[in-house]
């Protein structure tokens, strides 16, 4: 289990570095992006997979996002970047991309479906994937933004 958690953290960190590179962060922010992503993703992994916890992906994402939101707010004055600069790229590995395009796939298949049963099946896939994706996103951003909002004095002064 410990090995799995460490592996999850490592690959999440690599993923965060690469995906954040697309949105040109300042060089000093890379390390913190990777750190936050590793903490966030492995925490979500633990909350979902650990025996006795086994939370739903939505709840686990919200809690993980909130924790790294708090971390980001307190780290941002140290890095001298706005909190989002480290936080948003760190959230990228948790973005439910597969749910997003599966819901589009389901929509397309339900339009093309022949007969009620097959339509219902694909419409279910569309609705299930779409709703899960939407609520993970809303939950993640809410969870991650609440700390920025709570500690306004720190988060909007970080670049001072």
């Amino acid at each position: 289990m410990l090995l799995q958690i460490l592996q999850d953290a490592l690959f999440a960190a690599i993923a965060a570095i690469g995906f954040s590179a697309i949105s040109n962060p300042p060089k000093r922010a890379y390390f913190y992006c990777a750190l936050l992503a590793a903490v966030g993703h492995s925490l979500r992994f633990v909350l979902m997979q650990a025996p006795g916890i086994g939370w739903h992906i939505i709840v686990a994402s919200v809690v993980a996002a909130f924790i790294i939101g708090v971390l980001a707010v307190f780290l941002s004055p140290k890095v001298k970047t706005p909190a989002e600069t480290c936080l948003f790229p760190a959230l990228l590995p948790m973005i439910p991309g597969i749910y997003a395009y599966k819901s589009f796939g389901g929509l397309a298949m339900s339009i093309l479906a022949i007969g009620e049963e097959s339509f219902n099946h694909y419409f279910y896939l569309f609705a299930y994937n779409g709703l899960t994706c939407l609520f993970i996103l809303i939950g993640m951003v809410t969870g991650a933004t609440i700390p920025i909002f709570l500690f306004k004095n720190i988060s909007f002064r970080a670049t001072r």
Binding site: F19, I95, I98, M140, T145
Partner: peptide, 22 residues
């Protein structure tokens, strides 16, 4: 196949969008 396209998911616009909503 599923993950080969995930680098194209517009993550930052999604996050910014919900931040504006809040």
């Amino acid at each position: 196949i599923g993950t080969s396209v995930l680098y194209l998911v517009p993550g930052i616009p999604f996050l910014n969008s919900f931040s504006d909503m809040i």
